[in-house]
């Protein structure tokens, strides 16, 4: 996808203190049990108590992040809302599955069923904002956020002034166990700060939400421009390289989805070797691995482009860029299947 759009506002709830003030002095939060949970804010300033009482965790995280991104953008007029999520509200899905069995299919609470539908967060944002514009939800693992982004860029090209685009994901103890049975996580317990030093199969689990207000035109406030998007489904290593060569971005840094999983490191090696003289900035030690982690990577990249710095505690001294960063390539893949290249530019 060609065409350019701008990030006018954004917000993230993640396993790091990303929702609070003073991002650049934020500490580095970590885990030693292979699961990085979100640092959740107080939702009351964002959601009325009468709505909050029924909402499950994923809905609160998703809606609150979306609302903060809207506020951050200073845009008040309604526009389309497009999101991506690989798994939606797992907590609700699990609860309804269990209650069907526990209560033998009789007298079931409808709320978990309603909230388990993948578009429930999008519906809530629209409802809360009284927004009747275009509304769509993509649910395709490592292509969920990316397709939401593509849809949003198309909407802007078709004439929308701005689009709220986001992604959200949660991990539950049960789903962590389920995915451990097919090798998603490292079998040894590691310190998440050292994720990339463990050259073994699997990664650490994570979760989070990131929302962006995208606009056609830049303003003084814009964080960054999104200048290109390329997706590859189950490519060979050669295909990743040839795409990279054809895409031919000249960039000052690569934000890499590297997640410590030795089975798929070779893809990251190709991209990093292609750009061997510029900083490679990882982010999975911050947010963990999940379907829509690339949205966190984009949030990080946009911050770097706007502020020209990274939270000090999150990276080793020599990982902090020493030269101005004007262009960034974000490269991420989800367990080797869905690969995405996103080009970001300083405004």
């Amino acid at each position: 996808m060609k065409g350019k759009c701008y990030i006018q506002g954004m917000a993230a709830i993640s396993p790091q203190p990303t929702f609070e003030e003073n991002l650049f002095s934020a500490q580095l939060l970590y885990t030693d049990n292979n699961l990085l949970p979100c640092k959740e804010p107080d939702y009351k300033p964002f959601i009325p108590a009468n709505s909050l009482r029924r909402m499950s965790r994923m809905l609160k995280i998703g809606l609150t992040t979306a609302l903060k991104a809207i506020t951050d953008s200073n845009l008040t007029v309604q526009g389309p809302i497009v999101t991506g999520t690989g798994k939606g509200s797992l907590q609700d899905t699990e609860k309804f599955l269990k209650e069907i069995v526990t209560y033998q299919e009789t007298a079931l609470n409808p709320t978990p069923f309603i909230q388990s539908t993948y578009n429930s967060v999008n519906g809530l944002i629209a409802l809360q904002q009284k927004c009747t514009a275009y509304n769509n939800t993509f649910v395709h693992r490592g292509f969920s956020f990316e397709n939401a982004l593509l849809d949003s860029m198309m909407l802007l090209q078709e004439g929308s002034d701005h689009v709220l685009t986001g992604a959200f994901e949660e991990i539950t103890a049960e789903h962590f166990y389920i995915k451990s049975r097919i090798g998603f996580w490292k079998s040894e317990q590691i310190d998440s700060r050292e994720l990339l030093l463990h050259n073994t199969p699997g990664s650490v689990a994570g979760e989070g939400a990131a929302f962006f207000m995208l606009t056609q035109e830049p303003t003084d406030q814009s964080y960054a421009a999104i200048n290109g998007l390329k997706l590859l489904y189950k490519p060979s290593a050669e295909k990743v390289l040839s795409t990279l060569q054809a895409f031919a971005p000249e960039v000052d840094a690569v934000i890499t989805g590297r997640n410590g999983d030795c089975r798929f490191n070779h893809f990251y090696n190709i991209v990093e070797q292609h750009f061997d003289n510029i900083p490679h900035i990882p982010f999975k030690h911050l947010c963990g691995e999940y379907d829509t982690a690339s949205a966190f990577g984009m949030w990080l990249g946009a911050n770097l482009l706007k502020h020209q710095e990274l939270p000090e505690a999150w990276f080793a001294k020599d990982q902090h860029p020493s030269k101005p960063i004007n262009k960034i390539l974000l490269y991420n893949h989800f367990y080797g299947e869905q690969h995405a290249f996103i080009l970001l530019e300083r405004v």
Binding site: N50, R54, Y103, T106, A107, L108, N109, P110, T111, I114
Partner: peptide
Amino acid sequence: LGLDSIDSLELMVLMERQYHIK
């Protein structure tokens, strides 16, 4: 209380589970 139609379904569940009234 300002409840809505989903609450009304939840209350019907309450009647059924607690009072066995369908």
